[in-house]
Computed example of a mutant assay.
Amino acid sequence: MELLVKMASLISDACRDAERLPVALISCGVVQAAAALCLLISRPPGGIFLHHGKAPFYLYYGILIAVFIFGLFEASAGFWVSNNVNGRRAAGKTILCVSILPLVVVAALGGFIILH
């Protein structure tokens, strides 16, 4: 839970200060990708994903793969934004705001518990 609070504070700091935007993008992207990868490797699907056929089972892994790819994309966007922070601020803030949803998905599936 502490890691999730740190990510939220990074996001809020980046929205106020453009110089912190690349750090927030890179950090959140790497943590997001790592949490999704940990869930892919170590935790099988549970709850609603188990007893309702094959579609939810594959949906679980599809969601985690999509979050992993988006985390890598977000981290690479952080490097892209760092080359021209003032000119690419709007794109970086948009990516950072969109990244809140995958962050919540990984947290709901228990990805941050594994990282501790």
Rank of each mutant, 00 (worst) to 15 (best):
E19S: 12
A18Q: 10
M1A: 14
M7F: 06
S82C: 08
S99I: 01
I65C: 12
Y61F: 13
M1I: 11
V23E: 11
L25T: 02
V23G: 11
V104P: 04
A107V: 04
G71W: 02
H52Q: 13
C15N: 14
A90S: 14
G46I: 10
R16F: 07
N83H: 15
Q32L: 12
I65H: 13
P45I: 03
K93I: 07
Q32F: 05
V85K: 13
E19R: 14
K54C: 13
C38A: 10
V85Q: 12
N83K: 15
V5P: 08
S42R: 14
R16K: 13
I100G: 05
V106C: 00
L25W: 01
H51P: 14
A90C: 10
C97V: 12
A77Y: 05
L109N: 00
A108F: 10
E2Q: 14
A33Y: 03
E74N: 07
S76Y: 09
V67R: 03
T94P: 06
F49R: 03
A18D: 13
I95E: 04
V105H: 03
A18F: 09
I69W: 12
L64D: 00
E2F: 13
K54R: 15
I114A: 08
G92C: 05
I69C: 15
R88E: 05
C28G: 05
L101M: 12
A66E: 06
N83L: 15
Y60I: 02
C28K: 08
A33P: 01
M1K: 14
G111H: 01
G78E: 01
S76T: 13
L96K: 00
R88K: 13
V98D: 12
P44W: 10
F57W: 11
